[in-house]
């Protein structure tokens, strides 16, 4: 027991501070990836809902591919694909080594692309759940398309989207552990490093699991709070 406290402690030679710092990297990675995913997802939803064929088809392919292919494969595509392109550009300028992409940015991009595919489905469903009468009311009031989206549709759409977004967020948080494979020192990678150097893998992976669990539980309450807020003023049936 004293051994565990010593390894995970905050004193000299303890890993507590490193694990907490890595947790904040995980959180930053997940939040930024989720935000990028929101932008991509909103675009994809707009594409899916578009009456024109090409955007609808492109959005459909995007959603199908990135929800159907293992996330690890997507991460390899972005990291190696990007690095290979960068290395080739590097050789043009006389560099002769492998140029790796910055891992944090690649991680955000990967999580953004993957979660965007899931968020697109959430937004599309939520848009369709908004009462038709609201669109007609916007027209009757003479609101422009942008005004009706911003003032009327999106606030109501969020009510239906929040539970789904909460699920996607949990997915994002867990997916962020996969970014460790490209060498970014987030929580998972930090646990691996600690496990390797102390030869105590069990303690480190339990600690990592506990930290992920705490982040998941705490952030879930943010979604619950937002949901309660989004529904304020509505009488529950």
């Amino acid at each position: 027991m004293t051994n565990i406290m010593h390894i995970l402690g905050f004193q000299q030679g303890g890993w507590g501070a490193a694990l907490l710092a890595a947790s904040s990297v995980t959180l930053a990675l997940s939040v930024l990836g989720f935000i990028l995913g929101a932008a991509l997802g909103a675009t994809a939803a707009a594409g899916r809902l578009s009456p024109r064929r090409v955007p609808a088809w492109l959005a459909h392919v995007y959603g199908t591919v990135f929800r159907g292919v293992p996330d690890l494969l997507t991460i390899y595509l972005l990291y190696y694909g990007g690095s290979i392109a960068l290395t080739q550009i590097g050789t043009l300028f006389g560099s002769d080594g492998f140029v790796g992409l910055p891992t944090f940015a690649t991680g955000v991009l990967a999580i953004g692309i993957i979660s965007g595919a899931y968020q697109g489905e959430v937004y599309r469903g939520a848009y369709q759940a908004v009462d038709r009468g609201q669109f007609e009311a916007c027209k009757a009031l003479g609101l422009s398309r942008y005004q009706s989206l911003r003032l009327v549709i999106v606030p109501q759409l969020m009510r239906h989207a929040l539970p789904g977004l909460g699920n996607v967020w949990q997915l994002v948080l867990k997916d962020s552990a996969l970014i460790s494979v490209i060498g970014l020192v987030e929580l998972m990678r930090q646990a691996q490093i600690g496990a390797g150097s102390t030869r105590e893998p069990f303690i480190f992976y339990v600690a990592a699991a506990a930290l992920y669990f705490v982040i998941a539980v705490v952030t879930a309450s943010v979604f619950r709070f937002s949901e309660a807020r989004a529904w304020r003023g509505m009488v529950h049936a």
């Binding site: 867990k174 646990a191 699991a209």
Partner: peptide
Amino acid sequence: GTPLLVQIFL
């Protein structure tokens, strides 16, 4: 509530 990768490593 925890990543599958952590479970596999554990």
